[in-house]
Design a binder for these strands. Structure first.
Lengths: 121, 121
DNA sequence: CTCCTACATCGACGGATGTCGATCCAAAGT
DNA sequence: ACTTTGGATCGACATCCGTCGATGTAGGAG
């Protein structure tokens, strides 16, 4: 109990609006936390691989398929997908019994904006 | 213990070569770990702020200056700078008693490449 | 040589993270 | 109705991470 409500990644949920240019004008504590939250979502090799799988699939993929390919327990895969979903990097769609996840390409592209701006200012 | 093995976090050190497009062809476990390592370096709000400070400074900044502005203990700032340095995102230069850190803009730009759709190749 | 300053490193601590197996839940099929 | 199946959640555990204060260390100033 207690820990359930876990607002675990409440802060990171905005996919694009969070993307303050890291090299732009002064980044405040709040913006820094938002940016860090996005990076945290990608700070695990298995999540990077999941994102890569979804990117290559081009289409939505069900959890069972991902679980099989990544070689982790089903619960762990769910855990990672929840983090990615919470960060806005992937989308979720329920089709009957199956849950299909797909890459949010716009969100992914917006992460790049965090860097490019300011680098070539 | 002698000087210091600056190679402390050898795994993440390659700035650009690590940057496998996250949306490109199959990312193996090794490449995923390298990419995740880079993101891990930016997965903390205080490190994001440090990078931002260095970006805005345009020039190298000494640790004492950063410590004062970020409001953390000196040891903690050193800890974060070491992580950023280990990831290749920032450079270090010793000037007498002072240590000056500066943003490695090439490395930062290369992180953006991770997100670029690999198709352009 | 002695002291001070700037920085790195250490020891410790609490909190977050990744993982598993087990459990719960809802939808589908029988 | 019962059973099965896909997926989310839980409990427990080991590890990692961020932070501080304290200590170590090297360069400059006196």
């Amino acid at each position: 109990m207690t820990k359930m409500g876990i607002r675990t990644q409440a802060l990171a949920v905005r996919p694009a609006s969070c993307c303050v240019p890291i090299a732009g004008p002064d980044v405040g504590p709040g913006e820094a936390e938002a940016a860090a939250g996005l990076f945290r979502a990608l700070a695990d090799p298995n999540r990077v691989r999941l994102v890569n799988m979804l990117a290559n699939a081009g289409d939505a993929v069900c959890v069972c398929d991902l679980t099989e390919r990544i070689g982790l327990s089903q619960g762990t895969v769910s855990f990672h997908l929840k983090k990615l979903f919470g960060s806005g990097l992937i989308d979720r769609e329920q089709r009957g019994t199956w849950a299909y996840y797909s890459l949010n390409r716009a969100a992914l592209a917006s992460v790049a904006d965090v860097f490019v701006e300011g680098v070539s200012r």
